[in-house]
Amino acid sequence: MSNPWAGEVDLVVDGQRHICKLTLGALAEMEAGLETGSMMDLVTRFESGAFSSRDVLALIVAGLRGGGAQVTAADLFNADIAGGPVAAARVAAELLARAFAMPEG
Rank of each mutant, 00 (worst) to 15 (best):
V56N: 01
A87S: 13
F46G: 01
A79R: 02
P85I: 11
A93N: 00
A89R: 00
A69W: 04
A69C: 08
A50Y: 11
L95I: 10
F51T: 00
F100N: 07
A28T: 14
L27I: 14
M30T: 02
N78S: 12
V86K: 11
F77I: 06
E31I: 10
P85S: 14
M30Y: 08
F100H: 08
I81S: 02
E35R: 15
D80Q: 12
G33N: 15
F46Q: 10
A97M: 11
R65E: 00
T23N: 08
A82N: 04
R54Y: 09
V71F: 03
A82I: 09
S38I: 03
Q70C: 06
K21R: 15
S52I: 10
L59M: 09
L42F: 07
E94H: 04
A74S: 15
R45Y: 07
R98Y: 08
A28S: 14
D75Q: 05
G67C: 02
T44I: 11
A99G: 05
P85N: 13
T44C: 12
D80P: 03
E31H: 01
L96A: 04
E31Y: 12
A58S: 15
V71A: 05
L59Y: 07
G49N: 11
T72V: 05
S38F: 09
M102P: 05
M30H: 06
R98C: 05
A89F: 01
Q70A: 15
A101F: 13
M102D: 08
V86W: 10
A62G: 06
E29M: 10
I81P: 04
R90F: 03
L57N: 09
M102A: 15
A74G: 13
R54A: 14
V61N: 04
L57T: 14
V61F: 02
L76W: 02
A69L: 02
N78Y: 01
D55K: 06
E29C: 12
A28Y: 13
L76I: 11
